[in-house]
Design a protein around this nucleic acid. Structure first.
Lengths: 217, 217, 217, 217
DNA sequence: AATGAATGAGTTTTCATTCAT
DNA sequence: AATGAATGAAAACTCATTCAT
């Protein structure tokens, strides 16, 4: 009998872990946490149920591991494209958006799972899910500060920044989700829409083109 | 615990139905469909489990009834504020947004449930959930058309309308969700943010202030 | 408003009771005791569930009432044809068999229910079901005794009478059940088969044409 | 309570399956499908409810498995005694009847369950239950044909064969059932009764001793 | 007297988790 | 180390029966 190459080695173990997480991404994203049974997941992943427990401790542990991997992967990818790179804030924002979309494109299942948990998870795994968010928000914040400084914008005009920042993230998710149903749209086009929403809104603020309700409306 | 009085009369029946739906809204929005057991829901609603079945036929039936009530209530409220009322498109949009926020404010649980199902439900109850969406989208579409006509905008400038329209809806939901965590912010302020996102983006499009990537970026 | 003729009178009450029993016969015979729900039965019979309880006290009470009516009807019919009527034992047996088949033909549901309970009921309603049996067995027994006396048969030849008598009843049921699936066969033909089985076996016994195993078989 | 030993090995599994089926035979035969709850059955069989599902898939699956085992066992036993064995048709019939009674004697519960389902089951599990019947009927048919050929009987005398064949089977069941209540009667005696019913009726037919109604009876 | 409404007690079934080999 | 086998706990759902009008 031939030794199953690496299956018992250190790297084999890690490879197998990743393979299980791939299956978990797919199943959790397609059907949600509760609709997935470990019986089925173990079957699809070619592992025994006790094996699952050896790797992840519990169903929740597996779910968290999948969320964490997705969250970390996303943030790392975007950070690599933005932080400490050359170019104008605008150019770096553009590269960040492209990196975001690239990640989504290559990891649709993982991103869907992340998105679902963020908007509908009831906050139970907030910490796992929010890490990517915070790291990306920090990047945006930095870029915004740089830009504002360059344009000489005073702090008071940024009062609306928090909700609008939140809105920006929500918009990204919203458009990304729309993109999943329109895969024929090129990544660049989607990125352009995002840039417009992000930059235009910001520019409007800067230039005082803000809508205000008149009295009595 | 719900008031028992008169549950056996015609009106009592309807009142009881509504009371059960109130509890359902709360529990489903807090914990999601699967995390709610009928045992518990029945207990909280002061009704027996067979009673639940007499009213709603199944757990799913109860969930759908709750979604439907929320969806219908939301759409009706916004329509009443916008359709066939006087004023400029801008003013009517403003009133529509206020009505939307008013509904959310008064029915946080119902709205949360609706939102969750829309963005993370896997489309199983798409029909129930989408009805409100479509009715509101139709309102926005009408207002946009009116505005565009008034400003003499050609069709070609509207190419980005679909994803941006989707983005607008997503933005509303996103800001509304943010609002749930910041109840101290007055409704009017939130409405203003929404108006800005909605109107400014549209105005930008109209006036050709669109961002485009330069070659090689 | 017109008085629902008789519905509240003594006879109306009895008529309604019978109508409910008719429905019960049908449903119990088609699907068995447990597969029938009172909800459905009440619906089919056009009566409310509390109404059912007013008439029969319980589901079991309804079932027993139906069994009793069937059992009593069957025995009465056969007795009327045999007991105290004129003719040879053979002729009276023939008329008895015809009466039995007539009853089955006219009350298939009731007979099926009775039969089912007899062979598969676990004896719980043995008393209800066995009454008809005993009364018919008594008739057969009388006829046999008359015949045996007439032919001058000694007691010892009748040792096998009990199992063969039982066999005769079983055969009747068996053939009757077969008949339900072959309604095109005329009643007279079925009766003839029964007469042959009954009479021939008996005649064989009388005339010593009994099969005996040889040693070593 | 069933012996636990070795339930986790290959043979242990099969042994346990059989032990559960034994309990199922007993409970189903005593009380009928609906009166048996899996809770109780699992308790009596010394297995957990999920265990039951692992072995049989559903309550119905368990019932069918029990029916199938009984049906197969019965037919196999009788076939082994009759098919391809030496001796006259009469002798082989005798051995077949003995085998039938032997099976019933050793598997009273299984046989009762089979019998109940056959005569009162509404045909839902007809296929499972009918297999044994058909195999035994084929044996009888062959023996009859041999006998008829040996005695030079023309076809026309066999017109009544179908209902009388059915009657024979019903008679067997009927006598067997009677035997369950009279366990003191030796198996050979019961077999003799059956032979007489079977053989005598046949012989009567052959020799034209058929009863016919006179006109006007 | 008759019935719409209500429910306690029970059913089958599923699933995450753990033994024991 | 890896896994076939086992189960405690809980879920959705049904039904005979009774209340209250």
């Amino acid at each position: 009998m031939v030794a199953r190459a690496g299956a018992r080695s250190r790297e084999g173990r890690e490879r197998r872990r990743q393979a299980v997480l791939d299956v978990a991404d797919r199943m959790f994203s397609e059907r949600g946490y509760h609709e997935v049974s470990l019986d089925e997941l173990a079957g699809d992943a070619g592992i025994s149920k006790p094996g699952l427990y050896a790797y992840f401790g519990s169903k929740e542990g597996l779910y968290v591991a999948a969320l964490r991997r997705a969250s970390e992967g996303l943030a790392a990818r975007v950070e690599a494209a933005v932080a400490g790179t050359a170019g104008s804030p605008e150019q770096r924002m553009w590269r960040g958006i492209l990196a975001l979309l690239e990640f989504i494109d290559e990891n649709r299942a993982a991103w869907t799972m992340l998105h679902r948990e963020r908007v509908a998870g009831g906050g139970r795994y907030f910490e796992e899910v929010d890490r990517a968010h915070e790291r990306m928000a920090a990047l945006i914040s930095d870029l915004s500060a740089e830009t504002a400084a360059a344009r000489g914008i005073a702090g008071s005009a940024l009062d609306a920044a928090e909700p609008l920042g939140h809105a920006f993230v929500g918009t990204c998710e919203s458009i990304a989700r729309w993109w999943l149903d329109h895969p024929e749209v090129p990544r660049g086009t989607v990125a352009m829409h995002l840039m417009n929403v992000a930059w235009m809104g910001f520019g409007d603020l800067v230039e005082g083109r803000m809508w205000l309700p008149e009295a009595g409306q």
